[in-house]
Design a protein around this nucleic acid. Structure first.
Length: 574
RNA sequence: GCGCCUGUAGCUCAGUUGGAUAGAGCAACGGACUUCUAAUCCGUGUGCCAGGGGUUCGACUCCCUUCAGGCGCACCA
């Protein structure tokens, strides 16, 4: 499957080789064996284990007997060093020398392409993420889906998928009528130019306060939104202005985070594409009247109905999302259409996907809501309930600022401090969102989020920096090395982790869980640091030194690639 | 009331489509820098895996149920 062709003409897959041996000995299908093979809980138990319990039923023998019999039949070769029975398990010890050679060679040959695949060839994957609302603050909560979506897209791309990054801006809806109304009443041009989102939010909040006293404002706002929908020049111009100003601020943030998009087609883009959705629904006789509104009944799925038209005949966000899905299918003919959006909207997506199914679109099964949990605040002072929203840009700036302070303590003579502080500070911040599964809330505290110790972004970056430092000092590294000089178990365990990188990527893609990659490269970093502290590299005997330099290079490559795939940049020094 | 998510060490979390003695980081304590960047490493403890049933050779994992917390439940997005 890999693009990489080994000198011998094939790429050795140790697990598969072992499965083939078992398959031959037991008459069990290769796929089944591969499925059963697992990793022993302790490293002294071997590298792969085959549980014999299922065979026990068929063969009507005790599992430990079967394991013993199979073990006797396994001959040592360049794949397997030995096989030992252990209770009902048959444990395999792989040929370490061959394995180490195989993996390091592969990493060095492929470089940053290591772990890539052609499994996604000719398959389009739409990834929608970030999607902030125009004229509203981009707060830390938005960072969650932004960071997760960005990582998912990169991982899929690495696996060969053709990805389309979509920022589905919240740039349409009745709130724009309110905003126009508020702007015309209290808008201060100068202030808005200077600090657009803050000021727009301020007048938006003021609108709601005033509207409580004077309900006529609501009518005014409705009227302005109607004008906007009817392409009234003034309304459109104001809407465009708000959109441009907001987007400009968002772009500054994306630039800092090194995140880009292929499309900013937001809700407004689909505002004229909803007629067809309504037509199809009518045609299929799916629309029902309910208190004057038009809905699609979803009782068969045991969920509340999906509203399509409000009682005043206007469309609603569900209508827009249906139009969006339709447009994406036609434009991109997606293999998967992924929505990285907060879990609070999971019912909404269930309704959309179910409705698409009722409309007869089989591809509704390819639409996936990748939900994120909440960002919470341990420090009560930062609670949103008190109106104290934490802006993403403030957190980013604080992260950089704090990192700069640490650099001044740890490495005051560092050259490009600002640039490094940016990579490390943001790395620490992003890592906080990338280290755990999506359905866990992110507890935001300045202390933990901007942590530089233990399992953290800087920890992994630091490991890379140490490795690179050694490579720089070493100067020219020989083309070839004799890896049989990598004798320690620590080194073997590290190489196994490097070899497991591909599986981590695939698992992360399958589960839409970037943390699988984050965690894996953190394990690699731990394993390398352990060696770093206990085995000399530059001062080792020539052959050992050379082999360890190759290993170091491979580690750096995988860490760099892994961090890149979750959206974290890595400095050369820190 | 209904639906979805969560519940594992003092804290924050992993636990590979059911497998062997449930693991990390943080916090605490004790060690390691004339030597490759100590943002590091090594060592020391802790678990009614929320409770109760069930499925089977085997359950943190699957099913049922109870409890606790969170998020949703049509004219906002």
């Amino acid at each position: 499957m890999s693009l990489y062709i080994k000198r011998g003409g094939y790429e050795m897959d140790f697990k598969k080789e072992i499965a083939q041996k078992i398959s031959l000995l037991t008459d069990m299908e290769l796929e089944k064996v591969l499925d059963l093979i697992e990793t022993p809980p302790q490293k002294n138990m071997g590298d792969y284990a085959f549980p014999c319990f299922q065979l026990a039923k068929v063969m009507r023998k005790a599992p430990n007997m079967i394991a013993a019999e199979l073990a006797a039949k396994v001959q040592p070769d360049n794949v397997v060093e030995k096989a030992e029975p252990a209770g009902g398990y048959l444990n395999f010890f792989i040929n370490k020398g061959e394995y180490i050679k195989e993996i390091i060679y592969e990493v060095l040959a492929q470089g940053e392409q290591f772990g890539s695949s052609d499994m996604g060839k000719d398959k389009n994957v739409v990834v929608e993420f970030s999607s902030p609302n125009i004229a509203k603050p981009f707060h830390v909560g938005h960072l969650y889906t932004t960071v997760i979506g960005n990582a998912i897209e990169k991982i899929y791309k690495h696996l060969g998928y053709n990805t389309i990054k979509m920022n589905h801006l919240g740039d349409w809806g009745t709130q724009f009528g309110k905003l126009i109304s508020a702007y015309k009443r209290w808008g201060d041009e100068a202030v808005i130019e200077k600090d657009p989102i803050n000021e727009l939010l301020k007048i938006y909040v003021k609108f709601h306060e005033e509207a409580e006293k004077d309900p006529a404002l609501e009518d005014e706002a409705r009227n302005y939104f109607k004008k906007l929908e009817d392409s009234d020049p003034e309304a459109v111009a104001l809407w465009q202005k708000f959109r441009d100003l907001s987007l400009k601020e968002f772009m500054e943030l994306y630039k800092k985070l090194n995140i880009s998009f292929d499309s900013f087609a937001g809700e407004s883009f689909y505002s004229d594409k909803m007629g067809e959705v309504v037509e199809i629904l009518k045609e299929k006789n799916l629309l029902k009247d309910s208190n004057g509104a038009k809905i699609v009944d979803l009782e068969q799925f045991n969920i509340p109905p999906c509203m399509i038209l409000k009682s005043d005949g206007a469309t609603i966000y569900a209508t827009r999302d249906l139009a969006t899905a339709l447009y994406r299918k036609r434009t991109y003919d997606f293999y998967k259409n992924v929505y990285v959006v907060g879990g609070t909207q999971s019912l909404h997506f269930q309704q959309i996907f179910s409705t698409l199914g009722l409309m007869g679109f089989e591809w509704h099964k390819d639409c996936i809501h990748v939900s994120t949990s909440l960002v919470k605040f341990a420090d009560k002072k930062l609670s949103t309930r008190k109106g104290d929203v934490i802006f993403a840009k403030d957190v980013v700036n604080e992260a950089i600022h704090k990192t700069l302070e640490v650099i001044d303590i740890k490495n005051a003579n560092l050259e490009n401090k600002e640039e490094v502080a940016k990579m490390v500070g943001i790395g620490a911040l992003l890592y906080a969102f990338l280290k755990n599964s999506r359905d866990k809330d992110v507890i935001f505290t300045w202390e933990d989020t901007l942590s530089f110790e233990g399992e953290s972004g800087p920890y992994v970056q630091y490991t890379y920096v140490r490795g690179k430092s050694i490579l720089r000092r070493a100067g020219q590294v020989a083309e070839t090395a004799d890896y049989s000089f990598l004798q320690s178990d620590d080194e073997f365990q590290l190489v196994k982790l490097l070899g497991g990188f591909k599986d981590a990527l695939k698992e992360a893609a399958d589960r839409y869980e970037p943390f699988v990659v984050t965690r894996h490269i953190t394990e690699i970093a731990k394993a390398y640091n352990k060696i770093y502290n206990s085995h000399p590299i530059l001062n080792a005997e020539a052959n050992v030194k050379n082999a360890r330099l190759h290993l170091t290079k491979a580690v750096c490559t995988v860490i760099y690639t892994g961090l890149k795939l979750v959206g974290i940049e890595t400095p050369e020094s820190m």
